Simulated assay, not measured.
Amino acid sequence: MLAESLTLLRIKPGDVEAVERFAGELGLTVYDAAYVYYARLHGAGWGRPGTWRWRQGGCGGAPGRLARVSILYTWPSRGEGFPHPGMLLDPLLGQVPIMGVTLRPGRLLYEGKAKRVLDAGDGRAVMEFKDGVTAFDGRRRDPAPGKGEAAARLSARMFELLEEHGVRTHYICYMGGSRILVERHEVAPLEVIVRNYAYGSMVRRMPFLKPMARLSRPLVELHLKDDERGDPLLLPEDVVEAGLLSWSELDALRSLALRVDAVLESFWRRRGLRLIDFKIEVARTPRGFVVVDEVSGDTMRLVDAEGRHLDKELYRRGGSVEELVEAYRELARLAGAPERLCGE
């Protein structure tokens, strides 16, 4: 039993076993401890490097010992001596900033070519962007160090931008590095593509269009999310007859896609880039559609004044991994740093 007064434990950075022992004394469940940074008691300021601070009775005045938790984790430092606080996801206390220890979130919910999604409890998930790139349905594949963080930072900022303009998303906050914290939703098996210029599969199926010609108005397409079938284009009737959406939901989804396009196109045009097209995924909720997944160089095609791609098309056309990662970092720099940081 811990003393009722403040208990100070010295734990050296990197001493994972000591972290696990300490968590066990508190009745906490720890998942894959990775690295110790600092420690913080909620509301009591930063501890000294390599120390833990904890007060029996919980944080924020909650009575009694803490119940078992789902996740305990933190993120890399934003500067020397100033790390992000960790987060406690607890069934009694909810989400509370606590001490700084990097821990992996809970069970794996989904893993794709570009991301891993892990359970964070309480209807939330951690979306972790991979340091890898694939093209042509996986026929070209390479490690891409740094791509995950650039894609996560850009997605976080784009979600913030959309929400600033009234578009609901699953985004909660940026965790630092290659991770964002999001709401969990059941995602519709659809990809929504909005095209501003004739490009890619649109030109292949309609050869009368000149490549890179500006369309008279944005075009919204629906595709079935199915890699084995090549994500086929769907007619509105296909979607309704299959029971995926109603006609009114189709109208709402189209309006949402055009609103997203207006926000993104204006944002990138002011930064000297043309938004050729983009892809989003959505979840259906009682309050309407929510934009989910990511908004990054993997899902947008952006071209500068010289016609240079700053997106995955660069890699598809034979560009190097290094060129791709630098393009993604340039997009992240142009977009600006995420403003909604977890734990603040």
Rank of each mutant, 00 (worst) to 15 (best):
L2K: 05
R10M: 10
D15Y: 02
V19F: 15
E20W: 08
E20Y: 08
F22C: 01
L26R: 04
T29E: 08
V30G: 00
V30L: 13
V30E: 03
Y31T: 08
A33Q: 03
Y37C: 00
Y38A: 03
Y38L: 13
H42T: 09
A44M: 15
A44W: 13
G47T: 12
R48D: 12
R48I: 10
R48G: 15
W54H: 08
R55E: 13
C59R: 11
C59T: 13
G61A: 14
A62Q: 13
R68I: 00
I71G: 00
Y73I: 08
P76Y: 01
S77N: 12
G81K: 10
G86P: 03
Q95I: 12
V101Y: 09
T102R: 15
L108N: 11
L109S: 02
L109V: 13
R116E: 14
D119T: 07
G121F: 05
G123H: 10
G123Y: 11
R124F: 08
A125P: 01
V126H: 02
A135Q: 07
A135Y: 01
R140N: 10
R140F: 10
K147I: 01
A152N: 01
S155C: 07
F159D: 01
E160G: 10
L161D: 05
L162V: 04
E163D: 02
E163L: 03
H165Y: 14
H165V: 07
H170E: 05
H170G: 02
I172V: 15
Y174C: 00
Y174H: 00
R179M: 14
R179E: 12
V182A: 13
E186D: 15
P189N: 04
I193A: 02
V194N: 11
Y197G: 08
A198M: 00
V203C: 01
R214N: 07
L219Q: 10
V220T: 11
V220K: 09
D226E: 11
E228D: 13
G230L: 14
P232S: 04
P236S: 02
D238S: 12
V240R: 07
L245P: 01
S246G: 11
S246A: 12
L256H: 11
V260I: 14
V263N: 03
L264F: 06
R269D: 04
R270K: 06
R271N: 10
R274G: 08
D277F: 07
K279I: 04
T285A: 12
T285K: 11
P286Q: 09
G288R: 04
D293V: 01
E294V: 09
V295W: 03
G297I: 05
D298S: 09
D298G: 07
D298K: 02
D304L: 05
H309L: 11
L310M: 09
D311L: 12
E313H: 06
E313Q: 15
G319I: 00
E326G: 02
R329G: 13
R333E: 15
R333G: 09
R340K: 15
C342W: 04
G343Q: 02
E344V: 09
